[in-house]
Amino acid sequence: MLSPAALQQIDREVAKYPPQRKESAVMSALRIAQTERGWLAPETIEFVANYLEMPPIAAFEVASFYNMYDLSPVGRYKLTVCTNLSCTLMGAESVAGHLKQKLGIGFNETTPDGKFTLKEGECMGACGDGPVALVNNVRMCGKLTPAEADRILAELE
């Protein structure tokens, strides 16, 4: 189900915790699985649960509790735009509006070519750089303006 490389990464996470506490690595393991598979299908969650010897429903609780896990397929690039107060004061609404118009989709939608998914995010702890957006959960883009947003879209092949 997961590649040897992914399993190796999971093993490294498991090693951070006491031997009887494998399930502590579930957040990392789900992240690693999601990165490899694109999203967390029930089978993927169950695989991770079995790997960490925890009940599948417990892993599902985790996968559904934290916002950055995707329980349904997303585009190749998931753009999560923070619209919380600081970012909004600093222009998040116009950036989000621009992205929606440019991509022709609303929040929680994916472009028909499967390339982009747009999500609304909560505070990312980077308000000084607001407005900010996160690309695929890992790349933080700050000081966004409609023009800057265009530049980033173009960069994502």
Binding site: I57, A58, E61, S64
Partner: peptide, 8 residues
């Protein structure tokens, strides 16, 4: 554990 509280 068969039941859980999913989502939040």
């Amino acid at each position: 554990m068969e039941m859980g509280m999913a989502h939040r």
